[in-house]
């Protein structure tokens, strides 16, 4: 029954229905309020596992808000509350007995502006595993190396692990943040406009990295750059003023959108 509901959600937004992938995150009539202002309006969608899903839309349309709801970073904002259902791997995210710490371990996040800690490269990547209990120096070194390799940064920093992370370039810092997020072995990686503060070359590298990471991780990326969404993602959701207008395979959204508003946005008539 659960699968049927999810397929329904899928089917209502997708042209061809031959997907049978499982859904990692599902939202059903999910809303987010800042005080009395409804920033996300009754969104219903399903994020497929192991794929890259992009969320696009004009600024202020609620895409970052929706993204930050998945790892409950919105809890930091006073007056922010959620309504409806948002499930991660079948469990309610906003349930009363949810362990937020466990959630955030399984759902990692990369921010718009690279924000490495003012510590060494090693300590940055090791921060996550350390707080989750890993103490052995040897195991930590292994985890750090593995994460930096996965983030395509190892070759560049392997000789300067003890140096301050703030000395890296912008692109390197962002890859470091990705490595840091990967170090706790999450299942989902949320990326909030990860390349908007970077130069084109670093942007390209990170987009390549996203391609390498898919399959191992489910990636949800919020971007205002449509070309990036088209390059990088398998599925795309278009949000406008808090509402989900359309959701489907990226190729289909960009070549043959079902909704007029989607078409207007993609062709640049507004936004």
């Amino acid at each position: 029954m659960e699968m049927a509901v999810e397929s329904d959600i899928f089917r209502s937004h997708v042209a061809d229905a031959d997907d049978d992938g499982t859904l990692h995150v599902t939202a059903q009539d999910f809303s987010i309020f800042y005080g009395s202002n409804e920033a996300v309006r009754e969104v219903t969608l399903g994020i497929p596992a192991g794929q890259v899903t992009a969320i696009i839309g004009p600024s202020g349309c609620g895409k970052s808000t929706f993204l930050r709801a998945i790892n409950r970073m919105n809890d930091l904002i006073p007056g922010c509350r959620a309504a409806g259902k948002l499930c991660f791997d079948g469990e309610h995210i906003y349930g009363s007995q949810v362990d937020v710490v466990a959630l955030r371990r399984r759902v990692g996040m990369v921010f718009q502006k690279p924000n490495p800690f003012p510590k060494s490269v090693f300590d940055n990547v090791a921060y996550g595993p350390r707080i989750h209990g890993l103490r052995s120096r040897g195991k930590l070194a292994q985890v750090v190396e593995r994460s930096l390799v996965r983030a395509a940064l190892w070759e560049e920093v392997k000789d300067r692990l003890a140096q301050n992370a703030l000395g890296l370039s912008g692109g390197q810092q962002q890859r470091l943040c990705i490595a840091r997020a990967l170090a706790v072995d999450p299942e989902i990686l949320l990326m909030d406009e990860p390349t908007s503060a970077l130069d084109p070359r670093s942007t390209g590298r990170i987009e390549d990295l996203i391609g390498e990471l898919r399959g191992t991780y489910t990636i949800i990326i919020v971007t205002h750059n449509m070309q990036q969404a088209a390059r990088v993602s398998d599925y795309t959701a278009f949000l406008y003023e808090g509402e989900l207008i359309e959701f489907g395979r990226t190729k289909q959204i960009f070549t043959n959108p079902q909704e007029k508003r989607t078409e207007d946005y993609i062709t640049g008539r507004f936004g």
Binding site: Q97, L103, E187
Partner: peptide, 18 residues
């Protein structure tokens, strides 16, 4: 009804606390 592995094939851990 939840299976033993998550969608990526890893062993599933519950989010819920007792």
């Amino acid at each position: 009804e939840l299976s033993l592995t998550d969608p990526l094939g890893r062993p599933r851990q519950s989010l819920l606390l007792s």
